[in-house]
């Protein structure tokens, strides 16, 4: 059976629209607040939610998401808590949910247990930032057994050989990192994005989402013309850091969505 992620990307492709993939750090500012934030993102037009599980040493993240991880950890957010958050979201929503974290919390939880518990909580897929395809065999096996998508990263530094491996291990979609660097907002899009998209396109039919540094409707609109999905993370996290209301989060999401839909 296709996952919610696959179904959503398929439906959007039929409509010739790109998916808006929104990242938030679960549990920031508190585990109780996250389901309402996700609902606001969905009302604003987000198609897929990446639920970040905070990790103590987020080496791939810039200052905005580092700070969010610290706040979430201080608020008592654990992987167990994030699965509770997912269950809460599932009570009212069918939006695709991707767990987004680092390998160590997942390993500690147990990969097979994580796969079955995540599935039961309504999670649809998983992305582990620091898990290379070379080391991914046991993880992919566990996720497949529970019918969860495994999303891997492609990067501007990836060779054609590596992109083939990324394609082989990925399901749902491939997350392309538009630039070398950590997560965070940037004023301009990277020149690396277009060549990366075409190199990855040559290796897979999977939907391609592009992220890292996208924070404005103009950028989202430009990316939507090239890719099947647009990932926005730090811009949302920064709003949450500033205690934005649900209405403000929804309005910003809508502005991104409208940019992408050319309105």
């Amino acid at each position: 059976m296709p996952t919610r992620i696959q179904t959503r990307f398929h439906a959007l492709q039929e409509q010739k629209r790109a998916a808006l993939v929104a990242y938030v750090t679960a549990g920031d500012p508190s585990p109780e607040r996250t389901p309402a934030i996700v609902a606001a993102l969905e009302r604003g037009g987000a198609d897929v939610i990446e639920l970040g599980v905070p990790f103590s040493d987020p080496i791939a993240d810039g200052p905005v998401i580092q700070a969010a991880s610290e706040r979430a950890l201080k608020a008592g957010t654990t992987l167990v808590k994030v699965l509770e958050i997912a269950r809460e979201i599932r009570k009212t929503s069918e939006i695709p949910l991707v767990l987004f974290t680092y390998l160590n919390p997942a390993m500690r939880y147990g990969l097979e247990k994580l796969a079955s518990d995540a599935k039961a909580a309504g999670i649809d897929g998983c992305l582990l930032t620091d898990l290379s395809v070379e080391e991914a065999e046991p993880y992919v096996k566990a996720m497949r057994a529970a019918d969860l998508d495994t999303v891997f990263l492609g990067a501007p530094t990836s060779t054609a050989e590596r992109l083939k491996l990324v394609a082989r291990y990925s399901t749902g979609f491939v997350y392309l990192v538009s630039r070398t660097g950590v997560t965070g907002e940037r004023t301009s899009l990277s020149d690396a994005a277009a060549p990366l998209l075409s190199a990855m396109r040559a290796a897979t039919k999977l939907p391609l989402a592009l992220g890292f540094g996208i924070s404005t409707p103009e950028q989202a609109s430009a990316v939507a013309k090239m890719a099947d999905g647009v990932v926005v993370g730090s811009a949302f996290v920064r709003m949450i850091e500033k205690n934005a209301s649900d209405a403000e989060i929804e309005a910003f999401t809508r502005s991104l969505r409208q940019g992408m839909d050319g309105k």
Partner: peptide, 14 residues
């Protein structure tokens, strides 16, 4: 051991 880093660093490590 092994190599557990974001994809950006994999080709440079190779």
């Amino acid at each position: 051991g092994g190599r557990f880093v974001p994809e950006v660093l994999m080709a440079p490590l190779e």
